[in-house]
Computed example of a mutant assay.
Amino acid sequence: MTANPIPYPFRRPGPLAVPKELGALRDEPVLRVILPSGDEAYLVTRHEDVRDVLTDLRVSRNLNRPGAPRVSKNNMMFQDSKMDPDPPEHTRVRRLVMKAFTATRVERLRPRVQEITDELIDAMAAKTPPVNVSEELSFPLSIRVICDLLGVPAHDQHRFRRWTDHFLSTGKYTREQIHGALGELNEYMGALIAAKRENPADDLVSALINVHDEDDTRLSEYELHWWCRLLLLIGYETTASQLGLTVAKLLAEPEQLRLLRADERLLSGAVEELLRWKLMSGSLSMLRYVTEDIVVGGVTIPKGSGVIPAVESANWDERVFDRPDDLDITRAENPHLTFSVGPHFCIGAALARVELETALATLLRRFPTLRLAIPAEELRRTEGTLIESLIEIPIAW
């Protein structure tokens, strides 16, 4: 293990490239790193070890402890002393949320996702290219879908972009700015829940209210507010950013784009491969706390340490993925960990896949000559935020 900690997340050599460190760091199963907050943590690099850490009950998501590492000095992110993010308490609440976030509910949304996608692409096609696919498709699609699912009125949807931007800041905003934005969101969510109690509908917020009101020992009022707020905040930013980066990366890979245009049956594999590339960001959101000494790859990580299962490194592990540095939409086996694994597997994974597949297929069908309007290397990435994306993705046809 390296003697001196290195800054994390790693810098990318280009907007659609992976960090150079990923090519060599798996020679060391564990690295010491410095987070944006200045705190130190251990970074786990190999696929097998990352899976083990993500499922190890001695590795806690509860960072509400004295001396626990922080992602950011100004932002507590997902830390909340009133919420227990570990099993069995987390499992109890998550199971209740999942009942309202079922595969059936997500599948019922597929026609609506297609309808919104068609509407947005119709509007985009009426414009003179180049257009910014992030603003014309990625973000509005994701916002409208999650708001439909949650039952948020359409006229309120424009407000969430700013709130989410502040919530996910690792250095972009001051502590006061973050607290102010989250205070506005908390007020909004309280009013929305009150309105849904008065007039319930076939949406996720109403379903969660029903779980609470049927038996308030199953889902407390605070848990109800917390989960509604969390699903709203992260329910669209990740998918929107992934969609924009997916379009940009695919358009920058002409051979892979040609394969997909020739055979739309490759669409699902293309989405999984682009998820494996994890172009959005590193794994800061995976930060954990070790409650007992653990041994990873022969290295002891001591009790009380911060640990990050580096999903982007696991997705690049040549022990698991043949030619990991090649984008290959025909890859037969793709056990990437982008949606995590174990008790904290992403509950929005199915919805994200529906949105990505629908938007990508429709874009390529509607625009046979779709291309990036500028060289890929001139694209610019966002900075100072937990979920990275591209500032602008100009496309033409």
Rank of each mutant, 00 (worst) to 15 (best):
M1R: 08
G14Q: 04
A24P: 02
R26P: 00
P29C: 13
L35P: 04
L35A: 08
A41H: 11
V53M: 08
L57I: 08
N62Q: 07
L63M: 10
K73Q: 14
M76F: 13
M83C: 00
D84L: 08
P85K: 11
R92D: 04
V93H: 09
M98N: 13
R110A: 14
T128V: 03
P129C: 09
E135H: 13
L137H: 13
L141W: 04
S142Y: 00
I143Y: 05
L150R: 03
A154K: 12
H158G: 04
T164A: 15
T164G: 11
F167D: 02
L168S: 00
K172A: 11
I178S: 08
E187Q: 00
E187S: 05
A195G: 10
R197F: 05
A201Q: 14
A201G: 15
A201F: 02
A201C: 07
A207C: 06
A207Q: 07
L224P: 06
W227V: 00
C228M: 00
L233T: 06
G235S: 03
T239M: 07
A240Q: 05
L243D: 06
L245H: 10
T246Y: 12
A248P: 05
A252H: 02
E255R: 13
L257M: 07
L259E: 09
D263F: 03
D263C: 09
A270V: 12
A270D: 04
V271E: 03
E272T: 06
E272I: 00
L275H: 04
K278H: 12
K278A: 10
L284V: 06
L287Y: 07
Y289T: 11
Y289H: 15
E292F: 05
E292Q: 12
D293P: 09
D293G: 05
I294L: 06
G297M: 09
G298H: 09
T300F: 03
S305E: 06
S305K: 07
S305H: 03
V307N: 03
V311M: 10
V311L: 12
A314P: 10
W316Y: 14
W316F: 15
D317V: 10
R319M: 09
D325N: 12
D325H: 11
D326F: 04
L327P: 02
D328H: 11
E333G: 12
P335E: 10
H336D: 01
V341L: 15
V341F: 12
A350T: 03
A352P: 02
L356E: 06
T358L: 02
A359N: 09
A359V: 09
L363M: 11
F367G: 00
T369C: 07
T369A: 13
L372A: 08
P375Y: 14
L386D: 04
I387Q: 04
I391P: 02
W397R: 03
